[in-house]
Protein backbone atom coordinates (compact mmCIF):
# COMPACT_ATOMS: atom_id res chain seq x y z
CA UNK A 1 0.00 0.00 0.00
CA UNK A 2 1.62 3.25 -1.10
CA UNK A 3 2.10 5.93 1.54
CA UNK A 4 0.46 8.69 -0.49
CA UNK A 5 -3.00 7.11 -0.17
CA UNK A 6 -2.82 7.58 3.59
CA UNK A 7 -1.67 11.15 3.22
CA UNK A 8 -4.59 11.80 0.82
CA UNK A 9 -7.02 10.55 3.46
CA UNK A 10 -5.30 12.65 6.13
CA UNK A 11 -5.44 15.76 3.93
CA UNK A 12 -9.09 15.10 3.08
CA UNK A 13 -9.96 14.92 6.77
CA UNK A 14 -8.03 18.09 7.58
CA UNK A 15 -9.46 19.88 4.53
CA UNK A 16 -13.02 18.98 5.43
CA UNK A 17 -12.41 20.19 8.97
CA UNK A 18 -11.07 23.43 7.55
CA UNK A 19 -14.23 23.83 5.46
CA UNK A 20 -16.30 23.10 8.56
CA UNK A 21 -14.51 25.85 10.48
CA UNK A 22 -14.38 28.41 7.68
CA UNK A 23 -17.85 28.10 6.20
CA UNK A 24 -20.53 27.89 8.91
CA UNK A 25 -23.18 27.03 6.31
CA UNK A 26 -21.50 23.66 5.71
CA UNK A 27 -21.61 22.57 9.35
CA UNK A 28 -24.88 20.71 8.86
CA UNK A 29 -23.32 18.14 6.53
CA UNK A 30 -19.52 18.18 6.72
CA UNK A 31 -19.47 16.20 9.94
CA UNK A 32 -21.56 13.51 8.26
CA UNK A 33 -18.94 13.15 5.52
CA UNK A 34 -16.25 13.01 8.20
CA UNK A 35 -18.23 10.36 10.06
CA UNK A 36 -18.48 8.25 6.91
CA UNK A 37 -14.76 8.69 6.26
CA UNK A 38 -13.98 7.87 9.89
CA UNK A 39 -16.09 4.72 10.09
CA UNK A 40 -14.93 3.56 6.66
CA UNK A 41 -11.35 4.42 7.59
CA UNK A 42 -11.47 2.45 10.82
CA UNK A 43 -13.07 -0.58 9.14
CA UNK A 44 -10.55 -0.59 6.29
CA UNK A 45 -7.76 0.40 8.67
CA UNK A 46 -8.55 -2.56 10.91
CA UNK A 47 -8.40 -4.86 7.89
CA UNK A 48 -5.08 -3.33 6.82
CA UNK A 49 -3.66 -3.62 10.32
CA UNK A 50 -4.84 -7.16 10.97
CA UNK A 51 -4.48 -8.76 7.54
CA UNK A 52 -2.32 -6.67 5.22
CA UNK A 53 0.50 -5.43 7.44
CA UNK A 54 3.48 -7.82 7.56
CA UNK A 55 4.44 -9.47 10.83
CA UNK A 56 7.23 -7.67 12.65
CA UNK A 57 10.70 -9.18 12.62
CA UNK A 58 10.91 -9.12 16.39
CA UNK A 59 7.42 -9.02 17.82
CA UNK A 60 5.50 -11.08 15.30
CA UNK A 61 1.80 -10.34 15.16
CA UNK A 62 1.43 -8.74 18.58
CA UNK A 63 2.72 -5.43 17.26
CA UNK A 64 -0.55 -4.99 15.30
CA UNK A 65 -1.91 -3.39 18.50
CA UNK A 66 0.36 -0.46 17.64
CA UNK A 67 -1.93 0.58 14.76
CA UNK A 68 -4.68 1.35 17.29
CA UNK A 69 -2.69 2.27 20.40
CA UNK A 70 -0.50 4.96 18.86
CA UNK A 71 -3.20 6.97 17.01
CA UNK A 72 -5.50 6.78 20.05
CA UNK A 73 -2.88 8.35 22.31
CA UNK A 74 -2.07 10.93 19.62
CA UNK A 75 -5.73 11.88 19.38
CA UNK A 76 -5.98 12.10 23.17
CA UNK A 77 -3.05 14.51 23.30
CA UNK A 78 -4.44 16.49 20.37
CA UNK A 79 -7.85 16.89 22.01
CA UNK A 80 -6.31 17.82 25.36
CA UNK A 81 -4.08 20.42 23.68
CA UNK A 82 -7.21 21.95 22.13
CA UNK A 83 -8.73 21.89 25.62
CA UNK A 84 -5.70 23.84 26.87
CA UNK A 85 -5.96 26.35 24.04
CA UNK A 86 -9.68 26.85 24.57
CA UNK A 87 -9.12 27.25 28.33
CA UNK A 88 -6.54 29.98 27.78
CA UNK A 89 -8.74 31.67 25.19
CA UNK A 90 -11.71 31.58 27.54
CA UNK A 91 -9.83 33.52 30.22
CA UNK A 92 -9.16 36.26 27.66
CA UNK A 93 -12.56 36.35 25.94
CA UNK A 94 -15.35 35.29 28.24
CA UNK A 95 -17.15 33.32 25.55
CA UNK A 96 -19.14 30.37 26.83
CA UNK A 97 -18.83 28.52 23.53
CA UNK A 98 -15.08 28.29 24.21
CA UNK A 99 -16.02 26.64 27.48
CA UNK A 100 -18.24 24.21 25.58
CA UNK A 101 -15.26 23.42 23.35
CA UNK A 102 -13.04 22.77 26.38
CA UNK A 103 -15.64 20.46 27.85
CA UNK A 104 -16.03 18.54 24.59
CA UNK A 105 -12.29 18.18 24.04
CA UNK A 106 -11.58 17.10 27.62
CA UNK A 107 -14.14 14.34 27.39
CA UNK A 108 -13.03 13.13 23.97
CA UNK A 109 -9.38 13.35 25.04
CA UNK A 110 -10.06 11.37 28.19
CA UNK A 111 -11.97 8.80 26.15
CA UNK A 112 -9.11 8.25 23.69
CA UNK A 113 -6.54 8.42 26.48
CA UNK A 114 -8.33 5.72 28.44
CA UNK A 115 -8.55 3.26 25.57
CA UNK A 116 -5.00 4.14 24.51
CA UNK A 117 -3.62 3.32 27.96
CA UNK A 118 -5.76 0.17 28.10
CA UNK A 119 -4.36 -1.00 24.77
CA UNK A 120 -0.90 -0.18 26.00
CA UNK A 121 -1.43 -2.53 28.93
CA UNK A 122 -2.70 -5.29 26.62
CA UNK A 123 0.34 -4.79 24.40
CA UNK A 124 2.70 -4.63 27.34
CA UNK A 125 1.83 -8.05 28.73
CA UNK A 126 3.13 -10.18 25.83
CA UNK A 127 6.03 -7.89 24.88
CA UNK A 128 7.37 -6.40 28.12
CA UNK A 129 6.02 -9.21 30.25
CA UNK A 130 3.99 -6.95 32.55
CA UNK A 131 0.62 -5.25 32.23
CA UNK A 132 1.84 -2.17 34.01
CA UNK A 133 4.96 -0.64 35.47
CA UNK A 134 5.62 2.78 37.00
CA UNK A 135 8.09 3.99 34.41
CA UNK A 136 8.06 7.75 33.62
CA UNK A 137 5.84 7.42 30.55
CA UNK A 138 3.19 5.22 32.15
CA UNK A 139 3.20 7.30 35.33
CA UNK A 140 2.55 10.54 33.47
CA UNK A 141 -0.13 8.82 31.37
CA UNK A 142 -1.89 7.65 34.53
CA UNK A 143 -1.66 11.17 35.96
CA UNK A 144 -3.22 12.51 32.75
CA UNK A 145 -6.21 10.19 33.12
CA UNK A 146 -6.92 11.03 36.77
CA UNK A 147 -6.27 14.76 36.38
CA UNK A 148 -8.76 15.08 33.55
CA UNK A 149 -11.28 12.85 35.36
CA UNK A 150 -11.04 15.39 38.18
CA UNK A 151 -11.52 18.17 35.66
CA UNK A 152 -14.76 16.60 34.39
CA UNK A 153 -15.91 15.96 37.96
CA UNK A 154 -15.37 19.63 38.81
CA UNK A 155 -17.69 20.58 35.96
CA UNK A 156 -20.39 18.43 37.54
CA UNK A 157 -20.09 20.07 40.94
CA UNK A 158 -20.51 23.71 39.90
CA UNK A 159 -23.95 24.98 38.87
CA UNK A 160 -23.26 28.55 37.81
CA UNK A 161 -22.18 28.39 34.12
CA UNK A 162 -19.87 31.42 34.34
CA UNK A 163 -18.06 30.19 37.42
CA UNK A 164 -17.89 26.66 36.08
CA UNK A 165 -16.33 27.95 32.88
CA UNK A 166 -13.72 30.09 34.63
CA UNK A 167 -12.75 27.52 37.21
CA UNK A 168 -12.51 24.67 34.77
CA UNK A 169 -10.40 26.85 32.47
CA UNK A 170 -7.99 27.40 35.38
CA UNK A 171 -7.93 23.68 36.20
CA UNK A 172 -7.54 22.83 32.51
CA UNK A 173 -4.47 25.05 32.21
CA UNK A 174 -2.85 23.59 35.33
CA UNK A 175 -3.71 20.04 34.22
CA UNK A 176 -2.04 20.65 30.85
CA UNK A 177 1.35 20.99 32.58
CA UNK A 178 1.42 17.16 32.58
CA UNK A 179 1.14 16.91 28.79
CA UNK A 180 4.65 18.08 27.75
CA UNK A 181 6.17 15.93 30.49
CA UNK A 182 4.14 12.96 29.21
CA UNK A 183 5.24 13.50 25.62
CA UNK A 184 8.94 14.07 26.32
CA UNK A 185 9.30 11.61 29.22
CA UNK A 186 10.73 8.92 26.93
CA UNK A 187 13.37 11.36 25.69
CA UNK A 188 14.28 12.95 29.00
CA UNK A 189 14.50 9.82 31.10
CA UNK A 190 15.31 6.14 30.73
CA UNK A 191 12.06 4.28 30.52
CA UNK A 192 10.60 0.89 29.78
CA UNK A 193 8.41 2.42 27.09
CA UNK A 194 10.27 2.84 23.81
CA UNK A 195 10.86 6.27 22.31
CA UNK A 196 8.53 7.76 19.75
CA UNK A 197 8.98 5.94 16.48
CA UNK A 198 8.79 7.59 13.08
CA UNK A 199 8.68 7.07 9.35
CA UNK A 200 12.44 6.44 9.31
CA UNK A 201 12.17 3.60 11.80
CA UNK A 202 9.32 1.75 10.13
CA UNK A 203 8.79 -0.27 7.06
CA UNK A 204 6.96 2.03 4.55
CA UNK A 205 3.89 -0.24 4.44
CA UNK A 206 3.66 -0.27 8.23
CA UNK A 207 4.03 3.52 8.34
CA UNK A 208 1.35 4.12 5.73
CA UNK A 209 -1.09 1.81 7.52
CA UNK A 210 -0.38 3.68 10.76
CA UNK A 211 -1.07 6.97 8.96
CA UNK A 212 -4.28 5.54 7.48
CA UNK A 213 -5.56 4.63 10.95
CA UNK A 214 -4.45 8.00 12.29
CA UNK A 215 -6.45 9.80 9.60
CA UNK A 216 -9.52 7.65 10.30
CA UNK A 217 -9.35 8.22 14.05
CA UNK A 218 -8.76 11.93 13.48
CA UNK A 219 -12.00 12.09 11.48
CA UNK A 220 -13.80 10.33 14.34
CA UNK A 221 -12.18 12.63 16.91
CA UNK A 222 -13.47 15.66 15.03
CA UNK A 223 -16.95 14.18 14.77
CA UNK A 224 -17.03 13.17 18.43
CA UNK A 225 -15.73 16.53 19.62
CA UNK A 226 -18.17 18.41 17.39
CA UNK A 227 -21.16 16.37 18.56
CA UNK A 228 -20.11 16.71 22.19
CA UNK A 229 -19.66 20.44 21.60
CA UNK A 230 -23.22 20.69 20.32
CA UNK A 231 -24.54 18.90 23.40
CA UNK A 232 -22.55 21.26 25.64
CA UNK A 233 -23.81 24.30 23.73
CA UNK A 234 -27.44 23.16 24.02
CA UNK A 235 -27.00 22.59 27.76
CA UNK A 236 -25.65 26.12 28.10
CA UNK A 237 -28.56 27.54 26.12
CA UNK A 238 -30.97 25.82 28.50
CA UNK A 239 -29.07 27.02 31.56
CA UNK A 240 -29.12 30.61 30.39
CA UNK A 241 -32.81 30.41 29.45
CA UNK A 242 -33.97 28.83 32.68
CA UNK A 243 -31.27 28.88 35.33
CA UNK A 244 -33.57 27.87 38.15
CA UNK A 245 -35.44 25.12 36.33
CA UNK A 246 -32.35 23.04 35.78
CA UNK A 247 -32.56 19.40 36.65
CA UNK A 248 -29.84 18.59 39.19
CA UNK A 249 -28.07 16.18 36.84
CA UNK A 250 -27.64 18.58 33.94
CA UNK A 251 -24.25 19.09 32.39
CA UNK A 252 -23.96 15.37 32.05
CA UNK A 253 -20.59 13.75 32.36
CA UNK A 254 -20.38 10.25 30.93
CA UNK A 255 -19.24 7.15 32.67
CA UNK A 256 -15.58 7.75 31.77
CA UNK A 257 -15.30 10.18 34.62
CA UNK A 258 -16.25 7.58 37.21
Amino acid sequence: MPTWTSYVLLLAVLGLFGVHLAVPATRAWVWKVLAVLGVGGVVSGSYLALAVAPADHEMGDVYRIMFAHVPEVWMALLALCVNFGASVAFLFRKDLSLDALSEACAEVGLFFGTIGVLLGAIWGRPTWGVWWDWDPRLTTAAIMLVVYSGYLALRKFVDDPEKRATWSAVVGIIAASDLPILWFSVRWWRSLHQRQSGAGKMDPTIWSILMWNTAALMALTIVFAYQRYRIAQATRAREVALPSALPPDSGDVPSEAA
Binding site: P54, A55, D56, H57, E58, M59, G60, D61, Y63, M66, T127, W128, G129, V130, D133, L192, Q194, R195, Q196, S197, K201, M202, D203, I206
Partner: peptide, 23 residues
Protein backbone atom coordinates in the same frame (compact mmCIF):
# COMPACT_ATOMS: atom_id res chain seq x y z
CA UNK B 1 11.04 -12.20 40.08
CA UNK B 2 10.04 -9.41 37.71
CA UNK B 3 11.55 -9.18 34.25
CA UNK B 4 10.56 -6.72 31.54
CA UNK B 5 11.71 -6.75 27.94
CA UNK B 6 12.64 -3.35 26.58
CA UNK B 7 11.78 -3.46 22.90
CA UNK B 8 12.91 -1.12 20.16
CA UNK B 9 10.81 1.38 18.27
CA UNK B 10 11.63 -0.18 14.89
CA UNK B 11 8.91 -2.01 13.05
CA UNK B 12 9.69 -3.99 9.91
CA UNK B 13 9.07 -7.42 8.43
CA UNK B 14 11.89 -9.97 8.58
CA UNK B 15 14.55 -9.27 6.01
CA UNK B 16 15.14 -11.88 3.28
CA UNK B 17 17.13 -14.70 4.79
CA UNK B 18 16.31 -13.61 8.32
CA UNK B 19 14.49 -16.40 10.12
CA UNK B 20 11.33 -15.08 11.76
CA UNK B 21 10.78 -16.17 15.34
CA UNK B 22 8.56 -19.15 15.87
CA UNK B 23 5.68 -17.41 17.60
Amino acid sequence: NRLMVNHSNEYRPPKPGEKPKNW
